[in-house]
Amino acid sequence: MEKADHGQDGGDRQMKVLSFFTALILGIFLLCGCISSRDFTGNMNNIDKDKIILVGSIELVPPLKPGEQNIKAALNWKEYENTIIFSLGEQIVTEKNSLSNLSQYLKVKIGETFYVEQKYSNKLYISAPCIWIETTGSGGAKFLYLPGPFLIEPPSGCKVIYIGKIRYHRDIYNGITKIELIDEFDAAKQDAEKKYNTSIDMCRARLKVSG
């Protein structure tokens, strides 16, 4: 790969072609089998036998500024706009996120309450939380990595479980300076009942810092 500033003939065109293919590849990566993180749409009082619904939210303080995320080179960038990506499952994921493994993760909008259907296990982990902050000229990605993992121990027999709000505080360098685990159970229950237009038997499983 020649440096563009050496002034080779056609350097600009080569770079534009490279840029186009970079964007195309990013798009293909991200369209392949992404886990939908859309809120549960079924009946809150008739959840599958082996499933539970986890209710919670993740906040970033201060929030992302307009223009702080530069990911528009990806075809489906909107899916990742103002979004936290994390793994939810029985295993702790320690692998650093990259464009090739984003499909394994859940995606939730920052600050918004999520209602995620999950297979029951007595131990579940939220791990590898991050925000995709930028696509790079070389076809890579930069992430704002957030501390984790967190352990969830769903009470047996409970189908709708409030796990709380994770609030990450950051400094100007994107260093994470503080993590708050906030319990807003009553408000979350009220919001869920309003959203699903039914009374919900919700219980609480406080997040624990794990590892």
Partner: peptide, 22 residues
């Protein structure tokens, strides 16, 4: 040219402050 090479795929809204040419 430098900007195209380094940032067009991504940092379209941003401009590099260059300490001169290279």
């Amino acid at each position: 040219k430098i900007a195209t090479f380094l940032i067009v795929p991504s940092l379209t809204a941003l401009i590099l402050s260059l300490c001169g040419c290279f």
